[in-house]
Computed example of a mutant assay.
Amino acid sequence: MATDIHLPASGAAPTSAASRRVAEERRRRLTIWVARAALLVAIIGIWQFSAGRLISDFFIGRPTEIAETLWRWAASGELFFHGGITAIEALLGFLLGSALGMSVGIVLGRSQMLADVLDPFITMFYSLPKVALAPMFILWFGIGIDMKIYLTATIVFFLVFLNTYSGVRAVSREQIAILRLMGANERHILRKVVVPSAITWVFNGLRLSVPYALIGAIVGELIASNKGLGYLLANASGQFDTSAMFAALIAIMILALMLNTAVRWFEHVAMPWKSVESRREMSI
């Protein structure tokens, strides 16, 4: 008497395991967001309780007053106007500095002779505190938006350049030699090997540069400006308005978070294979 034996589909077990891992990853992310929210609520609660009781609110302000200040600035449009000015300065300086840093990094990375010649000059300029250049930039470019953009670009340039240069120098010499044997010229080598291999290094530099781009814009506004979040911060400091100072700092942090998110999104678009690799690792 024959007995029917039903075997499970070959892909059923791996698919089930992958589904469980995806569900576990979702629960983990939800737990992280809940923990973050709880931590934020706890910090604000302790802050609100301490202000005026344990520590004078003249020094730390009150979260309720900070929220009122932010709401007042948002309702009047002042927050978006000054935040937009700072965002433009940081973004344009970031783009300019990144473009120059990547270009110079690729050129010097592919020309060891030129890199050796320029190495001491690059080291000297990199070691120089970029904030010290602000008075010179004011002298050269005035106190307008141009000065903040160029100062920001100078700060961003070195971070992107060093990462790009390191990425280009780390490219496999065997791959380049094989391409040359196949008749590839420098343009083919850059497009097929150098840029794809160094792009991870480049994006590391870009991520590191985002907060420094904002620092450049804010420092320029603190030194000489009547617009931007740095101006709001300096104006609040001049009036000894602690709540307004914290409100300006919170606005700066929110802007930094938005810029970081934009860079991460662009990295996801430029390197889609990283998301595929992450999903593949999750399914193993």
Score class of each variant (00 low, 15 high):
E221P: 00
S103V: 13
T86K: 01
A12T: 11
V171R: 02
F141L: 08
D241R: 12
A134N: 13
A51C: 15
L40S: 08
L139S: 11
R187S: 12
L108N: 11
L95D: 08
F137K: 10
R279W: 08
I43W: 02
S50E: 11
L190E: 09
F203Q: 06
L70W: 03
L79M: 07
D4T: 04
A13T: 15
T261C: 08
S76N: 07
R29K: 07
E65D: 07
G61V: 02
D4E: 13
T242R: 10
G84H: 08
V193G: 12
L222D: 04
I55P: 08
N260H: 13
L114Y: 00
I155S: 05
F266I: 10
F141E: 01
A87M: 10
A213K: 00
G216I: 02
I215E: 00
D119E: 12
L255K: 09
L100E: 05
I218T: 06
A67D: 02
A37I: 05
L159D: 00
S98Q: 09
F266E: 12
W273P: 11
I32D: 04
P196D: 07
M113K: 09
R187H: 06
A224G: 02
S111C: 12
P272K: 05
Q239L: 14
A75T: 11
L7H: 14
V168Q: 07
P272V: 02
F49G: 09
S76G: 10
L232V: 08
S127Y: 01
S10C: 04
D116P: 14
P63W: 00
A42E: 09
I143S: 08
V276L: 15
I254T: 01
G45F: 03
S275K: 13
T164Y: 10
M271Q: 14
Q175S: 12
G101L: 08
G238H: 13
V104F: 04
A198F: 05
L151M: 03
S237E: 09
P63R: 04
T154Q: 01
V156G: 11
L255Q: 03
S103R: 09
G105I: 10
L39T: 07
F157Q: 01
A224H: 06
L7E: 13
R169V: 10
I176N: 05
I122G: 01
I66D: 01
G142R: 13
K130G: 06
L162W: 14
R191Y: 11
